[in-house]
Each structure stands twice: as structure tokens, then as C-alpha cells.
Amino acid sequence: MNHVIRKVFFDFEKEEKFINEMSANGLALKQYSFGKYVFEDAPKGEYIYRLELLEHPANHEDSQDYIQYMEEMGAELVTSYFRWAYFRKKAVDGEFTIYSDNDSKIRHYKRIMSLFIIVAGLNFIIGLFNVFNGSLMAAKGYPPVNTYLAIVSFSIVALFVPFLILPLRKNINNLEKEKGIRE
């Protein structure tokens, strides 16, 4: 039986934890699309899930090579969403880690950071555009719909910076400090 849960995560580690907790309770993730998780019944704790932001969208040739390699390593691609890949491995096959040293963890975090910065940057530009349009509309006596849209865009930027970008920056800095003394 399928179980649908609607939820939005911005922190992939919290998302991964949520999916693994569901798996521990006998619900194995089957499909994901924005904000919608589809689970199916499975023996409790059968799978360990790991999330990864790939360098390219999942259907890109390089990503396909990587996904095939992951399959050879005993990991299965359950579902993907743009560049986000949801892998799982049977828990009986032992632990499942994708990045085991500071260097590769940092590289992964930096990929996520670039994504955040692109999203925040785009919203900022769209926001400016709408401020401009909004004041133009207002000058002509129309309701300034664009001004409201601009407020949405700027709010997204305002939330991204303290809640996503700065904590991730801190994670990266900590790992880099650690890297200065050990692998």
C-alpha cells in the first residue's frame, strides 16, 4: 500500500533523517516530487537511504555513469528530483555512506551551497525586476501586483541567507578547519 506524506525540507540531512526514520518504521520511500513523498510498506529497517546532490541532472550522461557505478556498489537509485538523487541500500549489506572523508564532504556541501546561492540570487534579481514593474504599475494607477511579488522574492532571499546559507557555510568552515589537521 502507498502512503503519501507532504512535507518540505530545505536541509537535506534532516530530510535524510526523516526518510530513514520512516524506513525504520516500515515505510520505504518509493518516489519523491516537490514536497510529496510516496512510501510503500517494507519490513522495518530494511533500507538505509542516502541523499546526494549530483553534479548534473539525473538523466545527464555523467550522472547515469555514476548511478550505474552506485548500482555496482549495491546501492539503488530510488527516485530523483532534478539533481537530487535518493539512493538506498539494504541494511543487511552493512553501512551505507556516500562521502567518508572531509574533502569529499566539503565538495558535496559546496555543490549545495552553489545551488542555494543561485536560487537566492535569482529571487533577488526577480525581486528587483518586480519592484521596478510594481512602481511603474502604481504610477499608472493599477494595483501594484508586482510589488507584492517582489516582497515574496525578497522574503525568500531573507530566509535563505540566515537559515540555509550561513549554517551551511559554518559546516564547510568547520570541515575545512578539521581538514587542516586530519583527513
Binding site: 551505507f96 556516500i98 569529499s104
Partner: peptide, 23 residues
């Protein structure tokens, strides 16, 4: 091949080194 390398490393290091697949 990849899987063999991972197993071999685990054996060589007596289980200490569990290399991540992506790493």
C-alpha cells in the same frame, strides 16, 4: 572493480576503513 576494492579495503584495515561510495 569498485565493489571489490571497497571490500578489500575493509578487509585490509580490519574493518576500520569504510570508504564511501561517492568518495
Amino acid at each position: 572493480h569498485g565493489y571489490g576494492i571497497m571490500q578489500n579495503i575493509k578487509e585490509l584495515s580490519n574493518g576500520r576503513v569504510a570508504l564511501g561510495a561517492g568518495t
